[in-house]
Amino acid sequence: MFKKGYLIPLLAFLPVLLLSGCNKMVVFDPKGPAARDILGLINWSLVFMLIVVVVVFGLFGYIVWKYRATSKNKDYVPPEEHGSTKLEIIWTAIPILIVIALTIPTVNTIYKLEKVPAGYEDKKPITINVTSADWKWIFSYPEQGIETVNYVNIPAGTPVKFKLTSAGTMQSFWVPALGGQKYTMNKMETQLYLTADNPGEFLGRNTNFNGKGYADMEFTVEAKSSKDFEKWVKEVKANAPKLTEKKYNELLKPTHLGRETFTGTHLAWVDHGKMNSKTYTNPELYKVHGVQGKIFKDEENNTEMNDSNGGEHNGN
């Protein structure tokens, strides 16, 4: 009976043991300053959490074992005790201290992540506009005048200012190896600074559920050396087709796409991050099984996109 009573704490202990030995997990393997800062914070918190877990589990095991009912202590009558002000002050004060110890670096890191990462201040950041749509990622390089779909190349060692917005549903832009995530919202622009220390390929994805095609909303980030990046830009400008408004409307339909590359950006005619930008919706293309309700036509923002019936989800 009592052996079994110990199984629970042991089992619950497992993660802590495992955590300390896991370095391969993406969050614990940062490839850029933002992810590194966050990891520093996570590790700092893990130390305190480990202490809490060890103390509570230890106390728990000790008390349950020592004061368990056995045939020997049948006549033992537990004492009447109401509490202990001293003890209660101690276990109020210690959590307060721990919270303070966690708060200060947390606030520091929150503010730090809003800025160009330390060590890269002298580098001129490049701007990339990220537009998420169902179910793809569109990257526009306003300075270079090119646009890519489902992959983004960045120069390594240069801070990148991602301007995030969405053409429709809300997504969350996350490249765990480089840093934390942020939502992309229609008619709203958020910003995220990410920097890759060295050239390499990283997986990025959407973490905010946005319908049928959500599982496949991944993209790759490739950090290239500055020279390679310039070369790539030149190649794209020479070879890629021009992005037209018609083509762009096609892109915004709820579909899955592979990688695509264009010259020119859609910012020429629409920036979904602006409060008064045009609304692009295709409710007809989102019908699934079951009874369909009435769809409200928006008089002012009719997008004339509902003529064809593309956009079938082809992932399943």
Binding site: P9, I38, L41, M49, V52, T106, G180, K182, T207
Partner: peptide, 28 residues
């Protein structure tokens, strides 16, 4: 009894999630 250790795990990970900057990596 089982509640105490299990809930402590939930609680400490809760504190980890509460740290805004760290949450950028845990969220969703």
């Amino acid at each position: 009894l089982a509640f105490i250790p299990c809930f402590v795990i939930g609680g400490v990970t809760g504190v980890m999630l509460a740290m805004g900057a760290a949450d950028y990596q845990y969220h969703n």
